[in-house]
Design a protein around this nucleic acid. Structure first.
Lengths: 215, 215
DNA sequence: TTAAACAAGAGGAAAAACCCTGTTTTTAAA
DNA sequence: TTTAAAAACAGGGTTTTTCCTCTTGTTTAA
């Protein structure tokens, strides 16, 4: 029976080696290579190496870390199946890896048996996540909807911002809000000042970053 | 021992009733009210009714549906703990409910025993999600990172768009790209045409929706 | 090889966005 | 009841954006 090829990318040699022997102990999987950082992997892939079934990718590495590697893979090898490995369950990092196409996020302190399940699940379903990571994910969805309004905006200002994110002129916005264009101009200027932006583009980006408008 | 109060909001009376008796059968929980739509709930809350421990909220309802209700709650009762109930596992809806603060998303065809676990978990951890929903969540994270570039854009056009999402004038963008402002103007016009947007705001929104720029 | 498509760029002009300094009216607070 | 801040609005000027048409040189495809 043909086994699935695995590549391990991790700068901690000891860990990488033991992980490799663990993976090799499964009948269905074989470790093809272990690399010490992202750019070793990228080099080989760029040189024409075929994608393995799954890449186990450490997040924190010197030279080219997990996130940089994911970005490269997303662009040039979007079909790569990557399981991220990490010491810490930092929310931002998890999101970043997953958003860039990682199929799952494993903490390094998981039960070895879980690794097998993770590999199997990724091949079958395309995704794998632990309870813990899923929780973090859920939380993040909510947090950013809460951490809104660090600067308290008035009802009308928010209405204005939302309209400013559409393809409308200020004149049209004024009509829609039943206010004079000059008042709208005042809103605009005031918001530029308090939000520290230079033009309407900045206002739109602020609105998106702070969840005032849905993307 | 004091039980946790539950409110059920569902327009299907038969379902609501049986759900209520199921919840009441747990020692730790008591159904306080059942409402037939979101606005009944909102009315009571607006009139000063205290929040229950958990609200079980149907997604598809007449008058005021789950999403509208979540939006109201997010604004006026952000501490409400809501478990969404739904017949279908539509990706958009799930995201929408969770983004608006739902603590979990239960499909109506789950095992009754899972409901108990869901209630317990929400109270303990703040969140509950089934395997299935978590999967949907993961998938959505990735799908939108892939569905990029439906319209094939040139390297330079993408560079321009990215800069157009910053607070720069076209003159500044031209300098940065070592091109004449008139060439930049050409890029702009061409992109407006092919992307079907009316102004730079539309361009920025397109860029964000299609993952050309990170938010 | 000739025509078509394309990229870079120019001129000119109207529309929209931006900026500053004011006045009047409302609203809220002392 | 007086005062003061905030909201609505105006005038008027500068800059940027947007739109249209046109030229020139380069690839590309028939």
């Amino acid at each position: 029976m043909k086994t699935h090829e695995i590549i391990i990318v991790d700068d901690h040699l000891l860990f990488a080696r033991s992980l490799a022997s663990l993976v090799d102990s499964y009948n269905e999987y074989t470790v093809k290579y272990t690399f010490q950082n992202g750019s070793e992997l990228v080099d080989k892939l760029a040189a024409g190496m075929a994608l393995p079934a799954i890449i186990l990718l450490d997040v924190k590495m010197p030279v080219m870390d997990g996130i940089a590697t994911m970005k490269w893979l997303k662009k040039y090898q979007p079909d790569a199946k990557v399981l991220a490995l990490s010491m810490e369950d930092d929310e931002k990092t998890i999101l970043n890896m997953l958003r860039n196409g990682a199929k799952g996020y494993l903490l390094k302190d998981i039960q070895p048996s879980l690794l097998k399940k993770a590999l199997d699940t990724v091949l079958e379903q395309g995704y794998f996540h632990t309870e813990q990571v899923a929780n973090t994910l859920m939380k993040s969805l909510n947090d950013d909807s809460k951490k809104k309004e660090r600067i308290q905006l008035k009802e009308n200002e928010i209405r204005f911002i939302k309209l400013a994110c559409e393809e409308k002129t200020y004149k049209e916005i004024a009509d829609e809000m039943f206010l004079s264009p000059k008042t709208i101009d005042g809103y605009r200027q005031h918001l530029f000042d308090i939000l520290n932006v230079k033009n309407r583009i900045g206002l739109v980006m602020y609105a998106i970053k702070n969840g005032i408008v849905e993307v």
